[in-house]
Design a protein around this nucleic acid. Structure first.
Lengths: 161, 161
DNA sequence: GCGAGACAGTTGCGCACGCAACCCTTTCTG
DNA sequence: CAGAAAGGGTTGCGTGCGCAACTGTCTCGC
């Protein structure tokens, strides 16, 4: 037995496997859809939007690069380039950190805030339409619990290596 | 990725918003982890693995490019390059389709099959450890239902544009 | 049967990302 | 209070992806 690679001892139970595949498909398709809607209708990359939101939610509309990278789920270098591009369009700007001269803040500009205000309805409509509307309150709570558990575990496993 | 800059009309209910954020974080962190494990331990890109699995599951261990692109959640051009790279490493090879001269099959090579056999345990252990083990059977069934619903809707919305 | 689309796959191009090496600053340690 | 180690951010480099335009093939209406 165990001729097929998926029939090895270390296999995944069917219910969990189905969940895993649905998880991957849901992510790929919704993200593609949301990214395209935002790009086509507002000419804004989804990554830009994410940065704008995170900065808007932060104290003083600014965050350290490190902290921001974690919040937008990007590597340090990835965020450096992303902020480069956004700075070129005057959506954010860099500020030196007075208390730690290694540090840099990324800060929302008025134009960045304006852009967020303009584009938020499109994105939020997308999230509502393509996700929230398809999930009941009970389902949403369970999703948050289970996926939060998965997220936390993966995060810890990644940092503990 | 989400949350409103202020309370706009088109906002997302809190439970669904929490689910959405957990969904994004879970995906980012687990994928990063699984990709790194496969790369570090087996020196295989996750995208390669995905292709190997899809071809292995297919009739005759081969699929049309189009069909394969859909299964591995990639654009046509993305798949072309991916198969280019895999062909260079002799994991797959292209075959002309006799009945439709526009068509091309990507087919698993013996070496591709061998690679799949070698690497599957690592990946499956990762999926079990970082996902399946954290989700009960009931939770898995609900995840599959809800996320499958979301995936299907997004897919239809994308194709119907 | 022939011309207009539709369809399958590839290619040019630009964008975006991660890794590892690097510089500068801070903190720890003896 | 030196020197080593750790931390914050950027840069060089290679990889990987999507979009749009293109080539070659098929299909359908007339």
């Amino acid at each position: 037995m165990s001729a097929s690679p998926s029939a090895t001892v270390t296999s995944v139970p069917p219910a969990q496997l189905a969940a895993w595949r649905a998880f991957l498909e849901a992510h790929a398709h919704t993200m593609e859809l949301l990214a395209r809607e935002l790009r086509d209708e507002e000419d804004l990359p989804l990554a830009f939007y994410d940065v704008l939101v995170q900065l808007h939610e932060a104290d003083g509309h600014r965050l350290r690069m490190q902290e921001l990278a974690e919040r937008v789920l990007l590597s340090k270098s990835g965020l450096t380039r992303l902020i480069d591009r956004m700075e070129r369009q005057h959506l954010v700007h860099r500020t030196a950190c007075p208390s730690d001269r290694r540090g840099t803040f990324a800060e929302l500009t008025p134009q960045g805030l304006e852009t967020l205000r303009r584009t938020a309805p499109t994105h939020l409509r997308g999230v509502r339409e393509h996700f929230a509307a398809l999930v009941s309150d009970e389902e949403a709570e369970l999703l948050a619990t289970v996926l939060g558990r998965v997220a936390t575990a993966a995060q810890e496993a990644a940092s503990a290596r």
